[in-house]
Simulated scan of single mutants.
Amino acid sequence: MPRGTLEVILISAKGLDDNDFLSSIDPYVILSYSGQEHKSTVQEGAGSNPQWNETFLFTVSDNASELNLKIMEKDNYNNDDNIGEAIIPLEAVFEEGSLPENAYNLVKDEEYCGEIKVALTFTPERNDDQSYNEEEETGGWKESASDF
């Protein structure tokens, strides 16, 4: 299983259900991966097409293979409302190293409710045990070559 750092760039969302009666919705995102959680800033009055452009880092050290993004609507008087959720499989970013900006469907109660745009980068942990000293590796060759 890969070990390293997962960088999530939260870019924007669109097509969110703007169901506030008196004003536009104030969305934010809860990002969770393998027991770690981050929360984006609240985009006050952003309505159905918020923009964040925020970066979050997660430590990858176990076999968790999904990133969960939950868009919430900040509510000053009641509990915050769940607008929708996207689950992003991470196998491709672990293999490729990065995935460019991409839109993922948001779902609530098994129904499409907008999309969220993110970019992902995975930086593997550098293992000093696996690194090698190039001089040691070729040292024997250089010495034997000079004898001829």
Rank of each mutant, 00 (worst) to 15 (best):
L67T: 03
L67R: 09
L67Y: 07
L67M: 07
N68D: 11
N68I: 13
K70Q: 12
I71T: 04
E73P: 05
E73V: 02
D75L: 07
D75E: 13
N76A: 09
Y77K: 06
N79I: 01
I83K: 14
G84F: 07
G84K: 05
G84Y: 01
G84L: 08
G84C: 10
I87C: 04
P89M: 06
L90W: 05
E91L: 09
E91A: 06
A92K: 14
F94S: 06
E95M: 07
E95W: 00
E96V: 03
E96T: 09
G97A: 03
S98R: 00
S98K: 09
L99P: 02
L99E: 11
L99C: 05
P100G: 15
E101V: 00
N102A: 11
A103G: 01
Y104C: 04
N105A: 12
N105D: 04
L106I: 10
L106G: 07
L106S: 04
V107I: 15
V107H: 10
K108C: 00
K108W: 03
D109T: 00
D109A: 09
E110F: 10
E110S: 15
E110Q: 12
E111T: 08
Y112K: 07
Y112A: 01
C113Q: 09
C113Y: 08
G114S: 02
E115Y: 09
E115R: 14
I116M: 01
I116E: 00
K117V: 13
V118S: 10
A119I: 02
L120C: 12
F122K: 10
P124T: 03
P124I: 03
E125C: 04
E125S: 13
R126P: 01
R126W: 03
N127C: 01
D128Q: 10
D129H: 07
D129F: 07
D129M: 02
D129N: 14
D129G: 08
Q130A: 11
Q130S: 06
Y132L: 14
Y132E: 13
Y132M: 13
E134C: 12
E137R: 10
T138L: 15
T138M: 11
T138E: 03
G139M: 13
G139L: 08
G140S: 14
G140L: 13
W141A: 15
W141E: 15
